[in-house]
Amino acid sequence: MFEKNEIIESHTLEECDACKKQLKRKFSQGDYVFKYTSKCSSCNGQVRITKIFGETLTPR
């Protein structure tokens, strides 16, 4: 159970199929796991979403 003062932030993890470079960003509508999103900025390979998950932010 999420605690009352917990804020869950959703993140999307992208990974290049070729160079395995990873990028973590905030989830945006339309994202789903294994979706091809863009070309890799380093090697021009295909970047796809490998994970979508929630992380807890506890307010100070």
């Binding site: 159970m1 999420f2 959703s10 993140h11 994970k51 979508i52 998950f53 929630g54």
Partner: peptide
């Protein structure tokens, strides 16, 4: 996982077990 973990947004520690 707990009931809450199972039906709400997948937590990082679960996704990391892939």
């Amino acid at each position: 996982q707990s009931v809450s973990d199972a039906i709400t947004l997948m937590k990082k520690k679960i996704a990391d077990q892939t």
